[in-house]
Nucleic acid binder design. Structure first.
Length: 210
DNA sequence: CTCCCGATAT
DNA sequence: ATATCAGGAG
């Protein structure tokens, strides 16, 4: 499967602008912390998640603490991330199942990860990429919006977008693409008001200025 | 498809 | 007032 010149140009400019180093914007010290942080990041900015987890991971300093947490208390501890009832319930169930079914270790396969409460394809791929360094494409709102703007996919469904990107992007760019697009999406191709005047991909964009 | 749901920019 | 933010489950 040949990579189109259009795609090569995009990747070359992203590499030049942001490098290819693997960076995670969710603060964490281990696998279960990243898992909990990623569950919290659903429909919430990473900046907000980092504020919450700063205290959260001191109070809950192990999976066992989450497994035995009081739901109401955990709800208040994570309230500002939104969807706090679902998230608190999922975090507790998730911690219990990792302890009971996976010997206390965060599993590495997509199927095992998505079998956990509150863990969908996006969260699972964050863990696979950042913890286990398995090539994976995380389709979040930035990747979705910008991949469409750049003409790398026409789909709305995140899984279909993931398949399109896996076909179009060389495997060694999968992880860096995610980091680059998130950075790009926050600095330039902002959802509410994209800065097309200062965008280094404007000439390759399908919907420039719209 | 609907519901979960607070913080922030416009 | 409205859209959007590193989504997932029923």
């Amino acid at each position: 499967m040949a990579v189109t010149k259009h795609t090569k140009q995009i990747l070359a400019r992203l590499d030049e602008a942001y490098g290819t180093e693997q960076i995670c914007y969710l603060n964490h010290e281990n696998a279960w912390q990243l898992l909990m942080a990623t569950i919290l990041s659903a429909q919430c900015t990473d900046a907000r998640v980092n504020i919450v987890t700063k205290d959260l991971f001191v109070k809950y300093d192990s999976l066992e603490k989450f497994a035995n947490a009081d739901v109401k208390e955990l709800e208040e501890d994570i309230r500002s991330t939104g969807f706090y009832r679902n998230k608190a319930k999922n975090m507790i169930a998730c911690a219990r199942r990792i302890i009971d079914e996976f010997g206390g270790e965060v599993p590495s396969s997509l199927d095992d990860l998505t079998s956990l409460a509150g863990v969908g394809r996006k969260t699972a791929n964050v863990i696979r990429g950042n913890i286990f360094h398995d090539p994976s494409i995380v389709v979040d709102t930035h990747v979705k919006r910008i991949s469409k703007r750049l003409g790398l996919t026409k789909h709305e469904d995140p899984y279909q977008i993931e398949l399109d990107l896996m076909k179009e992007l060389p495997k060694d760019h999968w992880i860096s693409y995610n980091m680059q697009i998130i950075t790009f999406g926050r600095q330039i191709c902002i959802a509410r008001s994209p800065k097309c005047e200062e965008c280094f991909l404007a000439d390759l964009c399908k919907v420039k200025g719209k």
